[in-house]
Design a protein around this nucleic acid. Structure first.
Length: 764
DNA sequence: GTCGGACTTATTTTT
DNA sequence: TAAGTCCGAC
């Protein structure tokens, strides 16, 4: 744990020249970078230079010659984080960064390891990685095979339980002893079906995401010589976002940490927002217990936000109990107080935000300096509608991802089947897409035959088309398909994989199928084109398929010069000068469901989410809540979120004209009243000076008025705003945006197959 | 194989 | 409310 003595002034290791990569670090950061031996926990608050510390640490280890690039294991959660890390490391150490083979996500590194030792867990090294769609379909087969009603016991639900178990590192036999909700699935058959699912995966030579970690974990536990090999290889381990690790990842890291214990975990317990998918805040809380003698370094100097923003966020997070505790500080100016605005209903809320966006724009801010962060995606719609009317360019970040689109999945299934004829799930997906007259009954028959004969479906088809067991009506198209398939396999040996896909999709009539589709065919064809283009960047089909199963994303138009609309979860790791935080109402945020399902733990996670939201702001955070909100078509009366009261009032500004009163509350006791703000609807005594925090105000005394419809908001022509020639490429409901005709941009939105609106935007 | 009506179900989402 | 799924009718 001892810091290797190195200072900016003098270093015997680094020759005469000062290590300039260390210059500009503050004392804590320097310590986090240079304490390279022994376990280290870096508690890095929001905006304290976490990534910089990690990358500089890598550089430092390399410059001191303590390890070669390939001997550093550096794990992240997302591909984006891994990419950013690599880029920044490259800037520090130059081309040597290419040698950082073990910098990547937990899953990609685990997959690499598993490919090398697959046979130890009964797989071949060419195993396929299933996406959750495949996973669900496989489970459906198993459940139906057991004659269990898939309506009462949906495969999706079990898939969710299995994921949770795998997150916790639980294997089927361990689940059997468990008495949880999932084990009760289908009258206590949960564990049994889980076991069967694992067996099927082995037969299919496949694994799901959780298996990547669990299988490697099993190998490390059972084969000491393999573990020893990795202990020798991974001399230094670095972990990003440690607060997001689940139990399986935690165990994985523990076992990979060798006797030298050169493990450095960086994280922030206050930003743990993924509990619902298995993250254990506990992992970071108990780090010191797990690694006795660990050095704990706190990064508390914030380089992002103003004083008011930090103080408001700090007051909020203070209400959480289980924390390691940090006090962020900044040398930045006080700045503006966090604004809190009560509003009548959600349409008015969107109006308020968009007017403010225009005001900011006129005052010289760029659109990309602003972001709207919502709790749940259904809240996005109101903002999209309003932004459209006002012609404010925006981009929705998140939403259905490229590789989750049906057409892309189909194309991948074709490729997967060509790559490995045994891929039954891929076969099933495309055998009748486009329609070849091979119906459900035939497919079931094929599956059955394959199962009985213990062979793959493709092999079963080859056998069956030579017999009389199938009606001619099914045999003819199947024969044709096999013939095509064999041709594609041959073709794959000679032509490049991107050309291969193009040919296959043409031959199979897949393009034609979408060309015939007037509604969304064109956008699907566009997506396929994009896919073919993207394939060129990969060496071969194998490499491409590995990429799509693990990376599952494609660089999308980042939407320069546009307001970002995203969920709070999606905003983690980002920052914006101005952040809008709408929908701070009890039940919405904090989410009722969170609180119902996980009680206090759920509430605390919601609070961390609020904390993440506020700390995204560099200069301005603007919170709003409404009195009336439509939830699933019903009007509901809302109460302001408790989080509002938890922010210290001296760092918060409420707009007097439009505080609770305007939002529709009738209370005489709202905190704004007591803070001296004059509601505009009632006479009251001299405002009293208010001192101190207002948490503890009895919120039950606030009574929202029942909803009365407000006058529909008129679309307002954009005043003096220029919309550039930017191509709008956004999501709206379930439709897509088309574009351009002459000097006009036509933005067409479709919901399902109903056209909703056309919007015309003059090109500037 | 396709269409339409009934029925169900509404967080957060990465790998 | 509104979108997705399922099932029966043609």
């Amino acid at each position: 744990m001892s810091a290797i003595p190195i200072s900016v002034q003098a270093s015997s290791h680094l020759g005469a020249s000062a290590p300039d990569y260390l210059s500009g670090l503050n004392p804590e950061q320097l310590k986090a970078v240079t304490t390279v031996t022994g376990p280290v926990l870096v508690l890095a608050g929001a905006g304290t230079g976490k990534t910089r510390v990690l990358t500089t640490r890598i550089a430092h280890i390399l410059k001191l010659g303590l390890a070669r690039p390939s001997e550093i294991l550096c794990v992240t959660f997302t591909n984006k984080a891994a990419r950013e890390m690599r880029e920044r490391a490259e800037r520090l150490i130059g081309p040597a960064a290419t040698g950082l083979y073990n910098l990547g996500t937990f899953h990609s590194i685990a997959a690499q390891i598993l490919r090398r030792h697959a046979e130890l867990v009964g797989l071949k090294s060419t195993f396929t990685i299933l996406d959750d769609d495949d996973q669900v379909r496989l489970l459906k087969q198993i459940i139906e095979g057991r004659r269990i009603d898939t309506k009462r016991f949906p495969p999706k639900t079990l898939a969710h339980f299995i994921d949770q178990w795998k997150n916790k590192g639980l294997l089927p036999d361990q689940v059997a002893k468990l008495n949880d909700e999932g084990a009760d699935f289908a009258f206590g058959k949960g564990a049994e079906i889980y076991a069967e699912y694992q067996d099927r995966l082995r037969v299919l030579n496949a694994c799901d995401f959780g298996d990547l970690l669990l299988h490697t974990l099993k190998i490390f536990t059972q084969y000491h010589e393999v573990l020893a090999q990795y202990h020798a290889r991974f001399k230094y381990i670095l972990v990003d976002e440690y607060q997001d690790t689940n139990v399986a990842q935690y165990l994985w890291l523990r076992i990979l940490t060798n006797a030298d214990r050169n493990l450095c975990c960086v994280g922030d317990d206050d930003q743990s927002i993924y509990g619902w998918r298995g993250a254990e805040v506990d992992n970071i809380l108990k780090f010191e217990r797990d690694y006795p003698g660990a050095e704990v370094i706190r990064l508390e100097r914030n380089y992002r936000s103003t004083k008011h923003i930090l103080a408001a966020a700090a007051g909020l997070i203070k209400a959480n109990s289980a924390r390691l505790g940090k006090t962020l500080w900044t040398e930045d100016q006080a700045g503006k107080k966090v604004l809190v605005q009560g509003i009548w209903d959600s349409a008015a809320e969107a109006q308020w935000v968009s007017e403010d966006v225009e005001k900011q724009k006129k005052a010289g801010r760029a659109y990309q300096d602003m972001a709207v962060l919502v709790r749940a995606s259904f809240q996005m719609r109101a903002f999209e509608e309003r932004f459209l009317m006002l012609q404010i360019p925006y981009v929705v970040i998140g939403g259905p991802r490229f590789f989750e689109r049906a057409e892309i999945r189909d194309a991948i299934a074709y490729l997967r089947l060509i790559q490995s004829p045994d891929d039954d799930l891929a076969f099933e997906r495309i055998i009748n897409v486009p329609k070849r007259g091979i119906g459900d009954a035939t497919v079931q028959k094929l599956l059955m035959q394959a199962r009985v004969a213990g062979q793959s479906v493709m092999a079963a088809v080859r056998d069956l088309i030579d017999t009389d067991e199938l009606p001619t009506r099914a045999r003819t198209p199947l024969t044709a398909f096999v013939r095509d398939y064999d041709r594609w396999r041959e073709l794959a040996k000679t032509i490049k994989h991107d050309m291969l896909l193009d040919t296959v999709l043409t031959d199979a009539g897949y393009y034609d199928m979408h060309r015939a589709d007037k509604v969304s065919g064109q956008s699907r064809l566009d997506n396929l084109k994009e896919m073919v283009n993207s394939m060129a960047d990969f060496e071969d089909l194998m490499a491409y398929l590995e990429h799509v199963s693990l990376v599952m994303e494609l660089e999308r138009d980042a939407g320069a010069n546009s307001v970002k609309i995203m969920t709070l979860h999606g905003a983690k790791g980002l920052e914006f000068p101005v952040v809008y935080l709408p929908g701070w109402e009890e039940g919405i945020f904090p989410s009722q469901r969170s609180m119902d399902e996980s009680g206090l733990r759920g509430l605390e996670e919601e609070r961390r989410l609020a904390y993440v939201g506020i700390t995204r702001a560099r200069e301005e955070a603007r919170i709003s809540f409404v009195a009336n909100r439509q939830v699933y078509g019903r009007w509901t009366s809302q109460l302001p979120s408790r989080f509002i009261d938890e922010m210290p009032i001296e760092h918060v500004e409420a707009v007097s004209q439009t505080g609770y009163a305007q939002a529709g509350w009738t209370s005489q006791e709202s905190r704004w009243d007591r803070a001296g703000y004059q509601p505009n609807y009632t006479k009251r005594e001299e405002p009293k000076a208010f001192g101190g925090n207002l948490s503890g105000v009895d919120m039950s005394r606030l009574e929202p008025k029942p909803h009365r419809p407000s006058a529909p908001a008129k679309p307002q022509p954009s005043k003096g705003l220029t919309v550039g020639t930017r191509v709008f490429h956004v999501k709206f409901g379930y439709g897509e945006v088309k574009e351009t005709e002459g000097n006009k941009l036509i933005v067409r939105f479709e919901t399902g197959d109903k056209k909703v609106m056309d919007s015309f935007v003059e090109k500037a």
